[in-house]
């Protein structure tokens, strides 16, 4: 049985411009100790998917319009705030992109680290402080005993992200949701942070959901990847398959846009236009107007394509236009 099983999640926002279907029918399984990636452009609904799971969507204007998210027999979407509070930060933790705005600047690190222990594990005082120091050492902060009494601004960006990770993992959660954890960091620091998450995952057996737009990060960290476009998954498969055998035109377009996959002087592939306006209900394939690597004329126009399993474990939206491969010019 998977650790977390999301089925047909729909998160809508009621705005003056109409209903924004930010997440429109997303299903996802996370097994114990697994790393699952969600990739896509800004606005594709990656973050909203994860915020929905933890009840972090502001309501109104947001609302969960359908679906279930089963975690150890509890439906996270309908269990209510009280139950969710016992899970969030304890069994499922989250780290965010910007460590400066997600740490409280007025609070010493010590207080921020021991707070989850006090709330969830009823550990207080010296014992909590001791555990916090231990955790800081684990995430590679030297001189932890002294540093624990510092404020967030006294740490560099990479160090702050380490503090965030320590905070998220101090309760030994089953699942860690990492929302663009390294986007704001340097490559060298990025590597350290990714390695750290991997190490902690191995030591604690935590499963991780990685939200990122960086296919390089996905390739290095995830077992499975979901490619998200306009609120839906267009392709889900193992990381290995995604790069060796991408099926959907959007996945292929993303991979073709990365400079690292081109030789010098070669023109990069660009995806024309913009993602669709999610306030209008989509009829047919959402990627049709931007589909250059498939055959846009074959894209579905009367119904939204469903995910189908082409080979075991490799799911792709069944749109003939997006699955078609254009002969290279």
């Amino acid at each position: 049985m998977p650790l977390l099983s999301v089925n047909n999640l729909k998160t809508y926002f009621d705005t003056r411009a109409g209903i924004v279907r930010a997440v429109d029918g997303v299903s996802l399984n996370v097994e114990k100790e697994q790393s699952v990636g969600i990739v896509g452009e800004s606005g594709s609904g990656k973050s909203v998917t994860c915020y929905s799971l933890l009840g972090l969507i502001p309501m109104p204007p947001g609302r969960i319009a359908g679906g279930t998210a089963m975690y150890e027999g509890t439906d996270l979407l309908s269990c209510g705030e009280k139950t969710l509070r016992t899970i969030r930060g304890k069994r499922i933790s989250m780290i965010f992109q910007d460590p400066m705005s997600s740490l409280n600047p007025y609070m010493k690190i010590s207080k921020q680290l021991t707070e989850p222990l006090e709330i969830h594990d009823n550990i207080h005082g010296k014992k909590a402080r001791h555990l916090a120091i231990e955790m800081l050492e684990k995430v590679g902060i030297k001189d932890a005993e002294k540093r624990i009494d510092s404020y967030p601004h006294e740490f560099s960006g990479g160090m702050r992200q380490r503090v965030m990770i320590a905070m998220a993992l101090i309760t030994k959660p089953d699942l860690l949701i990492a929302d663009e954890p390294t986007t704001a960091l340097d490559v060298t620091v990025q590597k350290q942070v990714l390695d750290l998450i991997k190490d902690m995952q191995r030591d604690l057996g935590t499963a991780v959901i990685f939200i990122t737009h960086d296919l390089g990060v996905v390739s290095e960290t995830c077992d499975e990847v979901n490619v998200m476009y306009a609120g839906r998954f267009v392709e889900s498969t193992t990381t290995k398959d995604l790069f060796s055998n991408p099926l959907h035109a959007y996945t292929r377009a993303l991979e073709a846009s990365i400079p690292a996959m081109h030789s010098k002087g070669e023109d990069l592939h660009t995806i024309p236009g913009l993602p669709p306006d999610l306030t209008k209900p989509l009829h047919g394939c959402s990627f049709k107007p931007r589909n250059l690597l498939g055959d846009a004329s074959l894209c579905l126009t009367d119904q939204q394509p469903e995910l189908v399993e082409t080979t075991p474990g490799h799911w792709v939206q069944d749109c003939p236009g997006c699955r078609a491969v254009r002969k290279s010019e």
Partner: peptide
Amino acid sequence: LLNAVPKIARHSDV
């Protein structure tokens, strides 16, 4: 520095 760049594992040429 180069070592730190996340590499995309290529299993076959596309």
